[in-house]
Amino acid sequence: MNYFSLFNLPETLTLDTQALASSYQTLQKLTHPDKFATASAQDRRIAMQKNAQVNDGYSVLKHPLTRAQHLLSLRGLTIDNEQHTLGDPEFLMQQMEWRETLEEIGSDENALEQMQDDIQALIRDKLTALDAMFEEDGSDNEDIANEIRKLTFIYKFSAQVEAQLDKLDDF
């Protein structure tokens, strides 16, 4: 299933989120089961299946990380839900450093926020680089996959920092 064509959008990592939201609403109005409440059982079933695809497509296209994974799978390599360890020693070192820093920071709110800002900037850089890789002729799927795996880790780490910030909010 190519979600870009379902939503009538160009196959690119950088996406017009307004156009995505607008396609989503149009598709919802055409396929939502409530629009078929008095239709035959078969039409209801087909609408529900299509609507489930629309919902899944929206959740995949909405987030840059899953969007990147989907783009790669359209190029023939599926890497979502995989158990894969990165073989990049430099990146592994950086991961460890980040974790140590996070531990040292503990509950220092300003430092945590600074760290989150840095991570967000890094994510933006990585996405720009990935976008270029997708657009370039002759990019290797494995190279792209490795960049996406790194990005997956960075997003996870960002969520950890966010969770630490949340804990501070609770008191």
Binding site: L6, N8, S22, S23, T26, L30, A41, Q42, K50
Partner: peptide, 25 residues
């Protein structure tokens, strides 16, 4: 009847989607 019309129903759904999204464009 459901079996005989299943493909028809799916094609209709796809056509209506294409038309709606093209119209929007």
């Amino acid at each position: 009847v459901d079996n005989a019309s299943q493909a028809f129903a799916a094609r209709r759904m796809d056509i209506s989607i294409q038309q709606a999204l093209a119209g929007k464009q």
